[in-house]
Amino acid sequence: MRIEFTLNGESARIESSAETLLVDLLRREFGLSGARPGCMRGQCGNCAVLFNGALTRACLLPVFRLEGCEVMTIEGFLRTKEFADIEYGFERAGMDPCRFCISSKVLVAHSVLLTELEPSDLEIERATSGVWCRCTSYSSFVNGIRYAAHARKRRYNERNF
């Protein structure tokens, strides 16, 4: 089937089998390997992407769901100002995730801050439970999100002045 969607801010057109999953499509057709195929059953969280602005698992999105939608992968997110907040937060917390899960952890952190700039412990716990890779300490992941939240608030405050 032929589909048209927005990928990392740019219009994308592609002909693909309707049952192809987004995680495969990104790698095969667009050379975007930031979303990692892990369990391929929506559980490990390593294939995180932003789908219409919301955190989603690319292994749970067949191509026929993409028509007219917006997809942002880590490759596109790296170019945004929001990424700078997360980068600062992770660095300050001494968080150094492995190359396999780092993209998902960045997007998870971003998704937490999308809904709340002062997230509760419970909200952070729920969000971080969606990435199974335990390559880095859990506390540094949580602290990284908190520092990123401070950075984002500061940036928003500066913008308002």
């Binding site: 309707a18 391929m40 059953r41 769901r65």
Partner: peptide, 24 residues
């Protein structure tokens, strides 16, 4: 949403049913 139909596939690349009506 596809979260059940896709998470309960026997193998990662098992195919979807032959006819699908998507509600999204």
């Amino acid at each position: 949403g596809g979260t059940h139909i896709l998470t309960t596939r026997g193998t990662a690349y098992q195919q979807l049913p032959e006819k699908v009506v998507t509600l999204h």
